[in-house]
């Protein structure tokens, strides 16, 4: 049936110009919505965020309702991970620990993303002496191992204010250089593209060129590193709390639970494995999310 085929061809040809051209970010969103791993990590994160927001919905017992008579009790009905040395329900405490860990991870990622993003973008965009100064500062902070710098800062704050904000600040002060480096190189790449020449040719101001052209085009790597950092900083928080210089009671955090359970791990593994499981699953969810976001933004890896 030749008529039918040609008719279909006409329809398609006619339809083509009407179809909206898909932008980069729309394509990214489409790739995201097609990835099963995206839904898996999103589902895990929804559960974790739900725990952080309303822990009492998930916990089976009050985490502060401890019974010394049942110290290190085995797992059983109503107490999936058993009880810790103080006789507190490990599962409930792990659920309540989500708030501190997630909160710190998100806050530090955003802060370091903002600071590193601004420093890196300024260095990459303005170049010259601005770049020289900012890059040297970035290198200096990059050379100080994050964990060492943060733990020195935390001792500096001492017991006086070792709360959530202290941990956030200590991690942020030493966590931004990596973001700055990545942002700088992606901004420099975007700056050299032809569209910048075109923008300058039509009389676009430098500031407008930065906001309208450079930022959207160099956002990809920044977004990837900030997403991946979520899991990294949650781990760092737990390490700091595990060393005993991070969050302190009555705040419940996974690292601190691991710190407390460490000494009795050989006789009672669950008080340590419980929070470790929550920690691992959360970090896994963020890593998967970071992967999926990277693949969606940079599809060359797929081909």
């Amino acid at each position: 049936m030749p008529e039918l085929a040609s008719a279909a061809g006409v329809v398609e040809r006619r339809g083509a110009p009407q179809r909206k051209r898909r932008g980069h970010w729309q394509a990214v969103r489409r790739r995201l919505s097609r990835s099963p791993l995206f839904y898996l990590s999103a589902a895990l994160l929804v559960v974790m965020v739900g725990m952080a927001a309303a822990p009492s919905l998930f916990a089976m017992a009050d985490p502060y309702d401890c019974d010394l008579g049942r110290t290190l009790a085995d797992a059983g009905a109503g107490q999936w991970f058993g009880r810790d040395l103080q006789g507190c329900d490990v599962f409930s405490r792990s659920v309540y620990g989500a708030r501190a860990s997630l909160g710190i991870g998100i806050a530090v990622s955003l802060l370091t993303g903002l600071l590193g993003g601004v420093v890196g973008a300024a260095a990459g965009y303005f170049g010259g002496w601005v770049d020289a100064v900012l890059s040297r500062i970035t290198e200096i902070f990059l050379a100080i191992p994050l964990l060492l710098g943060a733990s020195v800062l935390l001792t500096l704050f001492g017991t006086s204010g070792s709360g959530t904000w202290t941990v956030i600040i200590a991690l942020s002060v030493h966590g931004w250089p990596q973001v700055a480096r990545i942002t700088r190189s992606s901004v420099m790449e975007a700056k050299q593209q032809d569209y910048m020449l075109a923008a300058a040719a039509v009389g676009c101001s430098r500031l407008r060129a930065l906001v309208r052209h450079v930022v959207p085009n160099s956002l990809g790597p920044w977004l990837v590193v900030v997403t991946t950092n979520l899991g990294v900083f949650i781990t760092y928080e737990s390490i700091i709390s595990m060393l005993g210089i991070g969050l302190r009671p009555p705040t419940i955090s996974w690292g601190q639970m691991i710190h407390d359970a460490q000494a009795r791990f050989l006789e009672a593994p669950w008080p340590l494995l419980g929070p470790a499981l929550f920690l691992s699953v959360t970090v896994l969810a963020f890593i998967l999310l970071g992967d999926v976001v990277r693949d969606a933004i940079d599809p060359r890896i797929h081909s």
């Binding site: 899991g231 340590l272 470790a276 691992s280």
Partner: peptide, 8 residues
């Protein structure tokens, strides 16, 4: 390996 913290 990436998600299980190394101290665990």
């Amino acid at each position: 390996g990436l998600s299980i913290p190394f101290f665990v």
